[in-house]
């Protein structure tokens, strides 16, 4: 009897210990949803960007060019141009993402395009050397801050002249006249901004295009990104239904993706100017002088022919006619 008690006690202790080995459970395999990758800083527009459509008279009228223009390397003493020449390089804010306007050529790694040709003519006028130039890739929303801080001398980056930007910076005379349009996938059925009500439409942050999307009567949903090519990535990945910006930028996207097309009539006119820090009035006049030369000596026409002619339908346009106030 006692032996039975003892063995019972031992058995109890042992089984208690054995009980420590874990109980088995069943694992259900949860269904996961694929997380779609997004470009950096891609965001849906919650509120339309401040529509600061101020009245500022003729915004396209720039300052009259220097006459006579100084010879390369012989800039007037104390001028902005002289400072740049002494530094040895013209620092230009450009795009490296807009095909055939300002883009990084994958074969060479160099930044090229229509905007870059324009910037190089300014370097040529300053130094006599179009390569005396430092190209800094800026995003749309970095353009004005970098001009204000003096990190760049000039921005040549598909920049539309607007009244609210004129508060912060000066613009050269118009050097290209773009029209905002819409890029969609072929056979998507979209015919223009009017048919994109409630659809997601991409543009870069702080661009006039984004504001125009937000203010379109059809009420599309604006999606903002850092660089224009990010919009094409999102269109290809099905994260947006359309891209809306200037025809010249859209033409570059359509050239990279044969399954897309530019549709609809112009949403808004987008006259491009080169932006220059507010205080450098002499440089604005100098640049306008360079643009006069560029238009007159065929550089503009050649550059258009090289980069844009095949992309944009219709015969090559004449260079824009400048307007000046004093």
């Amino acid at each position: 009897m006692r032996l039975a008690l003892i063995s019972a006690a031992v058995v109890t202790v042992l089984t208690g210990l054995a009980g420590c080995t874990s109980s088995t459970g069943t694992t259900t395999i949860p269904s996961v949803t694929a997380a779609v990758p997004k470009p950096a800083n891609a965001a849906d527009l919650t509120a339309p960007p401040s529509a600061a459509v101020q009245e500022c008279g003729d915004k396209l009228a720039s300052l009259r060019p220097l006459n006579p223009m100084p010879k390369p390397g012989a800039m007037p003493g104390g001028s902005t141009m002289e400072k740049i020449v002494q530094r040895g390089k013209l620092i230009v804010g450009v795009d490296q993402n807009t095909y055939n306007v300002g883009f990084r050529n994958p074969f060479t790694g160099d930044i090229q395009g229509f905007d870059i040709d324009m910037a190089r003519s300014i370097a040529a006028a300053l130094f006599g050397d179009p390569d005396a130039i430092q190209l800094r890739a800026v995003t749309s929303d970095q353009r004005i801050p970098m001009l204000k801080s003096g990190e760049v001398d000039i921005v040549v980056r598909t920049m539309t002249i607007t009244c609210d930007r004129l508060v912060d910076v000066n613009f050269s005379a118009v050097y290209y006249e773009a029209q905002q349009q819409v890029l969609v996938k072929k056979n998507s059925g979209f015919t223009g901004m009017d048919s994109l009500g409630g659809k997601r439409v991409c543009a870069t942050k702080s661009s006039t295009s984004l504001r125009n999307i937000a203010n379109a009567p059809s009420k599309p949903i604006g999606v903002s990104v850092s660089d224009w090519t990010d919009c094409l990535v999102m269109l290809q990945q099905g994260q947006v239904d359309a891209v809306s910006t200037d025809d010249v930028i859209l033409a570059g996207m359509a050239a990279q993706d044969k399954y897309t097309e530019v549709v609809g009539s112009s949403v808004a006119a987008e006259p491009y100017g080169m932006a220059i820090p507010k205080q450098n009035v002499d440089f604005v006049r100098f640049v306008n002088g360079v643009l006069e030369q560029v238009r007159a000596n065929g550089t503009w026409k050649d550059s258009y022919g090289r980069w844009l002619d095949g992309l944009i339908p219709g015969p090559p346009p004449a260079p824009p006619v400048p307007r000046y106030k004093d």
Binding site: A35, P37, A40, R104, P106, V233, Q256
Partner: peptide, 24 residues
């Protein structure tokens, strides 16, 4: 693939990849 075709689209995809790497 895009880079191989000489399209600047390539670097945009690389940026997206890099963002995925750094953020997730």
């Amino acid at each position: 693939v895009n880079n191989r075709q000489g399209l600047p689209l390539g670097i945009a995809y690389q940026r997206e990849a890099s963002t995925l790497m750094r953020t997730q």
